[in-house]
Design a binder for these strands. Structure first.
Lengths: 345, 345
DNA sequence: TTGTAGGCGTTATCAG
DNA sequence: CTGATAACGCCTACAA
């Protein structure tokens, strides 16, 4: 592919009989350039269809305006909302967003971060792959001064900027809700405990049972690789085949919860009378399944937006901003899949 | 933010007492460099943690390795699958993917493409905003030699590389399926006819009615801005309130179709006996709704992958590749929402 | 097979 | 307020 020659600040400078520096400064609204000069130059730039070469500017400034985003699966509703928020925040401030997906594989994560590193991204937002338990590939960015913000799937033992929800409390509230609805034997669907969010959610689940004086039964605490619909079906099959099956399920995502509803219904269980179910995330499918799925609303879009805003704040700040964790509120959304008692009033 | 100094080919060159060009060539496997030299240099590069500065390379080569992607809404299942396919194809060949969303606004599309232009993307994949009817902002890329591939929402009157499905035929098949199931009065849910895909789908719908000897009634042919759940409910409310309501709906997306099912059920209609419904896309929610939604499977992931592969092929080709349209197969997927007759066997 | 030198387009420093 | 100049890191024509 051939590129046609494009217009540069030299061309503009020549045409106006000023120096390229003046043009550069004018286009960047430098204080030392006269209002009128700026106007003239910008007008010509527009007329000539001038477009700044960001690549050259980035090289000179040793700073691009590309923010790297690493998630596990773009097509998951939660993550696409996250990305959507990031894209909006970035664009508002004049940054681009580079996307890559790890497919929850550690190796992919490494390769993708390396590609980002070569591209000299100016900031990185990461939601870790399920497999990831060490962070050397990310420390590299921090070491060279590129801000990294972790979002949702954060590292267990690494200081850093983080944007999260209160997983412990959310899980506890969701579980307590089931207890309030009369559940006495509640199963748990979770991801690998290597991941902080799942460890925390499990902790919240356990805490809720303890608070309610209910026994903890490891045999109905299930951990999976991906919390897919398949896993949901597999687990529900197992649970309903037990001698004393559970009367409630707290699932740490909606996909598995929905498939649990579908399977349970298919074998004649009534939801929520026989089995009350609550999920996590508030994906659109919660409102499609019958009965509608109770869940924990996860502010994915806001999280993405905040994460990028945080990156930008760090980059543009004069002095170092101390490492901090932003924790967003969640909300337990009660729908028919868990509502066994009518509201009191 | 300060960046620490990074290692360059000069550093490597000095350490090995060779020239920077030798290092550059070695790292790029240039034929003129000895096998052994290459090995030595690559080893040192690895040891020193050298990372190529893609920004500098891009400036010099007048070519980045960033492919721009413009869609309307990242969070729509169809589009996130599309993006997922693009990301995979790009990464396989060593390209990054820059993402932006138009929110179906023409103005956004302009701004985003301008940002891409400044970034000197090496290729652009576009699915047009609903509002878009002129393409000057895109011709700019073509003029300067940056390949543009249109995907799904393609322009009406502009030559260019395209990756699409056969919208006409898909819609016709979907509508004919409803006819076969005994529907005699089929409503249509579509997007703006400015967009080729909706114009084509409508044409397919009309053709199917004609082939079946059914009358065409403009009052049950509905066009919306976004085919949202809200529009689906609004339209279904309207349709079921008619003196002679339809007995079938062909919706050009699944979201509106699902909300039609939900609304129709809520007012006591039986699906598919009273109202048979078929959607378009094969989003995950088709399998969540009860009854499961018949639909047209849209190979979003493959489309994305092909579109990027096409971009790369064009970029890397020695000679100009003629403009072409790749058309992918769809498949009508029959589920309970439209199945009124038992299969014959 | 390797080295030298120039330039990609911009911005920052320094001088005027 | 403006201009000249150097440099960002890499690649490549040309020279050796």
């Amino acid at each position: 592919m051939k590129k046609k020659s494009t217009i540069t600040i030299y061309d503009l400078a020549k045409e106006l009989n000023v120096s390229p520096s003046t043009v550069s400064r004018a286009l960047n609204d430098h204080y030392s350039i006269g209002k009128k000069t700026i106007k003239t130059i910008k007008k010509l730039a527009k007329d000539r269809g001038y477009s700044i070469n960001s690549v050259a500017a980035s090289l000179r400034k040793q700073q691009t305006n590309n923010i790297g985003v690493l998630v596990s699966w773009i097509k998951r509703p939660f993550q696409s909302s996250l990305i959507s928020g990031m894209e909006e925040a970035a664009r508002e401030s004049g940054y681009n967003v580079l996307i890559s997906q790890s497919h929850d594989k550690y190796d992919h994560e490494i390769e993708n971060t390396n590609a980002f590193y070569d591209s000299r991204i100016c900031g990185l937002v990461v939601s870790l792959a399920m497999e990831t338990t060490d962070y050397k590939h990310l420390e590299r960015f921090i070491d060279n001064g590129t801000p990294v913000v972790f979002v949702d799937r954060i590292p267990g033992h690494l200081d850093g900027y983080k944007v999260v929800i209160n997983n412990f409390e959310s899980a506890m509230k969701a579980t307590l809700h089931l207890v309030e609805q009369g559940c006495r034997r509640i199963a748990y669907f979770g991801g690998t405990e290597n991941q902080v969010i799942y460890a925390e959610r499990k902790r919240g689940y356990i805490e809720a049972l303890k608070l309610s004086g209910l026994p903890i039964d490891e045999s109905i605490i299930l951990h999976g690789d991906n919390l897919s619909a398949d896993e949901g079906v597999k687990w529900t099959t197992y649970l309903l085949g037990l001698d004393n099956p559970p009367d409630g399920i707290f699932s740490t995502n909606d996909t598995a919860a929905v498939s649990a509803i579908q399977y349970a219904k298919s074998v004649g269980k009534r939801i929520p009378e026989d089995l009350a179910i609550i999920g996590f995330n508030n994906d659109p499918l919660c409102l499609i399944i019958d009965p509608p799925l109770s869940t924990v609303h996860h502010p994915a879009f806001d999280m993405g937006k905040l994460a990028v805003e945080q990156i930008i704040r760090i980059m543009e700040a004069e002095e170092t901003i101390p490492v901090q964790t932003i924790m967003l509120e969640t909300e337990v959304i009660i729908r028919a899949s868990s509502l066994r008692k009518k509201p009191l009033d």
